[in-house]
Design a protein around this nucleic acid. Structure first.
Lengths: 327, 327
DNA sequence: TTGAAAGCGCTAACAA
DNA sequence: TTGTTAGCGCTTTCAA
C-alpha cells in the first residue's frame, strides 16, 4: 500500500477499492495513527484571506472588534491566514450587499456584522454558493446559508440584565428606564424583549417605561437619560441596551443619584470598568470581542481547510462583570 | 545570503555578523515576510508530552478537568502534543513532590493542581531547572518558578460571590452561612477571605457565621447545611465555597425554604444548571475547566516551541451564571 | 485502482 | 562566519 493510497483513504478522496480502504483504516486504528495537521497544511500550500466586515463610523464596541482583528493578525499570519478589516455601511442593505458581493473576488472567508435584511441574506447566500465561507458576527442573519453565527444570544443577554436589575433593585418600587440605540437594530430589539419578559414575569413591582432611542450616541443618550430622570424622579433603575453609556452616566451624575439608581449596561469598555468600580454602574453584560474575532477566524479557516473545530472553544458567552470580577 | 543564514538571524542563533543580520532583517521588513509556524514545527520534528497532574479520588470539578483533557487530546495530538492525565495524592506534599519529580523523565511539560507547600515548591523548581515547563492549574504555588498560573483569582471570586449574595439578599437582615471543603485548601481560604471582606464592608446588616467544613462531600455538606438551618431559622443566605452542593441543596429543600434562601456556589455542573433553573441556586461562580486545560496546554507548548501566545486568549475568567445566561 | 516523485517552508547537521 | 544538503509528514500531479 503506497503513501498516496493512504492519503486518499484518510481524506475520503475517490478512487480506492473498498477492500483496500478498509485495510488502510484498520491499520491506522491498530497503529494509533494521528495525522499531522501542520504537515497537511504545509503540503497543501494554501493560504487564506479573511475579511471582517464592520460598520463604518462605529461605536466603541465596533472599534474594539477592529482592534482585536489587528491584534490577531500576526498570530493568524503565521498560519498563512491573512485578516483584513473592511468597513461598510451596515445600515444600508443595498450597500452592504454590494460590498459583500465584491469581497468574494478577494477573500475565501468573510465575517460580517450583518443587518438582517432579505437583500443582505441573498448576498450572503450568493457568497456561500461561490464557495466563500461566511460567518455572521455579533448580529445574525438566521435564515441565510452562513456557516455559523459567532456571537451571543441577545434575548438571553436581555434576560440576564433583567434578572440582575430586578434583584439588585430588590424590594424598592418604581419605574425602570430603558435606553436603546434603535428599535431597528435586531440585537437591541432582542435584548429589549428578553429584558421585558423577565421584568414582567419576575419583578412585577417594577414598572418598565417604554424604551427610548439614544442612537448609540453619547449626547443623544445623555439627553434621553436626563429626560427620564426629570420626568420620573422616583426612577429606581436604568438599563442601557446599546452604546452611549458615557452620556447616561453624565446625566446620572448630574442628578446626584448615580449610586442610588441601579444602572446596568453592555460592553466592558475602559470607562465601564471605572463606572463599575465607583458604583455608578452595577453590572455590565459583555461579549468578548477578542474571542469573537478569533473564533470567527478559526471557524472559517477550519472549514476552508477541512479541519474540525473544538465546539466548546467556540461558544461565545454572555459575560457578567461586577466590580469584583473585572479581568 | 543563504537560507541557513536567514534562519540563524530570524531565530537569533549565534554565528552571524551583525552587518549581515541587519541586512537580512531589513529585507524581511521590506518584503513583509512572516514565518510559517507549521513548517517550522514540522522541520523541528519535535513532539511533546504533557502531563496533567490531578488529585486522586476527586470531586466533580476535578473529574471535569480530566474529561476536558480527554476531549482536547485529539486536537493537540494533531499538533504532535500528547496529553496525559496523571493522578496523585495532592494533599500529601511528599507524595506529590515525588510524583512530580518522576514525571520529569517522561514529560516536557507539566500542568499541576498543586498544594502550596515548600516541598511541592521545591519539586516544581526542580523540574523547571531540568528544563521541564510547569504550569500550576486551578490552585497556585506563587513562590515557585512555575512558568505560569492557569486559573482564577480566588479572592476575587469570593468577593464576587459576596457582592452577588449581598445584593440578592437586599434589605433583609439575618445570618449568612458559609460552607467550605477545608480551611487548608488555599483556594477555599482565599474565596472565604474575599467573601468576608465584601460582606463586612458593603453588607453590614448581614451577619456572616463562622465557616464550617463540608469536606467537599455531599453527605457531610448536607449535615453541615442542615445544622446551620436548624440552628439559625432566620438564615437568609448560604455560600458554598467548595464541592458538595448536592448535599446543601438536599438540606435546603428539606426545610422547604430552598427558593427563599439565597444560595450561591461554585462550579457549573449539570446539576447546578438545574438548581439555577428552578431557583434553588441564585448564582454560580465558575471557572471554565475546558478553557483552563487548553490554555495550560497552549502555554506549555508555546514555551517549549519558542512561540508566542495571545495573552488575551489565556486569561481565565471568573464567570457568573444565572439561570438566564447558561451556555 | 494504485504508485512514484516532487515539493510545501523550514531546521539541523555538516562542510567550506 | 556562511553555505549546502537532507529531510519533517503530508498533498498533488502524473504515470503505470
Amino acid at each position: 500500500v503506497s503513501l498516496a493510497t493512504v492519503d486518499r483513504v484518510l481524506n475520503n478522496r475517490p478512487g480506492v477499492r473498498v477492500g483496500t480502504a478498509e485495510r488502510v483504516r484498520e491499520a491506522c486504528e491498530r497503529l494509533g495513527y494521528s495525522p499531522n495537521l501542520f504537515a497537511a497544511r504545509l503540503a497543501r500550500g494554501a493560504s487564506y484571506r479573511l475579511a471582517f466586515v464592520l460598520p463604518t463610523g462605529a461605536n466603541r464596541f465596533m472599534l474594539d472588534l477592529a482592534e482585536q482583528v489587528k491584534r490577531a493578525k500576526d498570530h493568524f499570519a503565521s498560519q498563512r491566514a491573512y485578516l483584513d478589516v473592511v468597513h461598510a455601511d451596515v445600515f444600508d442593505p443595498k450597500a452592504l450587499a454590494a460590498a459583500l458581493e465584491r469581497l468574494g473576488d478577494t477573500y475565501q472567508g468573510v465575517a460580517v456584522v450583518a443587518l438582517d435584511h432579505p437583500r443582505v441574506r441573498r448576498a450572503i447566500d450568493g457568497l456561500t454558493v461561490r464557495g466563500v465561507r461566511v460567518a455572521t458576527l455579533v448580529s445574525d442573519v438566521p435564515t441565510s446559508k452562513r456557516l455559523r453565527y459567532v456571537g451571543i444570544d441577545n434575548v438571553a443577554a436581555g434576560r440576564t440584565a433583567g434578572t440582575l436589575l430586578g434583584r439588585f433593585v430588590a424590594s424598592r418600587k418604581g419605574p425602570v428606564g430603558v435606553i436603546l440605540g434603535s428599535t431597528k437594530l435586531s440585537d437591541h430589539a432582542e435584548r429589549l424583549r428578553g429584558f421585558g419578559e423577565v421584568l414582567s414575569r419576575d419583578h412585577r413591582h417594577l414598572q418598565m417605561l417604554p424604551a427610548r432611542a439614544g442612537r448609540d450616541d453619547d449626547e443623544a443618550s445623555a439627553a434621553v437619560a436626563a429626560a427620564l430622570l426629570t420626568e420620573h424622579p422616583d426612577l429606581v433603575a436604568l438599563y442601557s441596551i446599546g452604546a452611549g453609556n458615557a452620556g447616561v452616566v453624565h446625566a446620572l451624575k448630574a442628578t446626584g443619584r448615580a449610586r442610588e439608581i441601579v444602572f446596568i449596561g453592555h460592553e466592558l469598555s475602559e470607562q465601564a470598568r471605572d463606572w463599575l468600580c465607583c458604583g455608578t454602574m452595577d453590572a455590565v453584560i459583555n461579549q468578548d470581542a477578542g474571542h469573537e474575532v478569533r473564533s470567527a477566524a478559526r471557524v472559517l479557516l477550519a472549514d476552508l481547510a477541512g479541519e474540525r473545530i473544538l465546539p466548546d472553544q467556540e461558544r461565545i458567552r454572555i459575560e457578567i462583570f461586577l466590580r469584583d470580577n473585572l479581568p
